[in-house]
Amino acid sequence: MTKHLMMGAAFSLLAAPVLAQETTVIGVSIPAATHGWAGGMNFHAQEAIDRLEEVYPELDFVLATASDPAKQVSDIEDMVAARGISALVVLPFESEPLTGPVKAIADQGVWVTVVDRGLSEPNIQDLYVAGDNPGFGRVSGEYMVSAMPDGGDIVVLRGIPTTIDNERVEGFQAAIEGSGINILGMEHGNWNRDDSFTVMQDFLSRYPEIDAVWASDDDMAVGVLAAIEAAGRDDIQFVLGGAGMKEMIQRVMDGDTMIPADVTYPPSMIATAIELTAVGVTSSAPVSGTFTIGSVLVTPENAENYYFPDSPF
């Protein structure tokens, strides 16, 4: 796993959690596995915890998965009250509802690592492990430009209307600007196979000639491919997904012309966050700041490095 380390300017020594306790408890609070990406994230969190508990006998981990923001707040409060955690790794379900509770815990001196979705107030956390959404869009756009040097007509499937989706699409649009690539239409497929199938069917009815599809997500790419196949259309040269689902990485590895590449947004970033937190708690190495995990273009040449056959995603 290549990691682009961009430690923030604010390097500070970690003092608080390293006390004379026999075992230090690290709490990990993440959303439940309600979709593919979250499923992968759960898998990698569990795997990182299992590995770290062997490496650091003095560390103990509590993992809680929440199905909604309110449950996540209770989970975190329980971790502090019942387990006396000295560090918290949290992937907030939603930014707003989690900001207050996490701030209260940070004020008690608990180390806070925030993953992927930032809190509403940026200076609560000690460490922020972030995915790069504008970068995800940019890498996707740059690939489109390189794959279609003479330009062409594409359709775009967007995710659930959120900041994440907006940042990705803006990054994409900026990257293809002036390249002769023309976006015929954009609709929300909600990161969902069924919705993207429906949207793609309608795109196919609407446009007689489409050169390529930016599905922007591997689940959506599955629906898009099924719709194209069912319609028997051969004008579409390729579909670009994203996130790094193992089935899609496999197709890239196999040299499938419809899926020539993929762009990562790795759910394993939770493992990065847990590892860094463990390093911070057990050593004097400074780990505070912001750690941005870049989105990488997966091609047949490097696909093997991004293929995790055991992960559910």
Binding site: A33, G39, R193, D219, E247, P312
Partner: peptide
């Protein structure tokens, strides 16, 4: 169904 699919997708 989430449990059967281990949080991912059953194919």
């Amino acid at each position: 169904v989430t449990w059967l699919a281990d949080g991912g997708t059953l194919s």
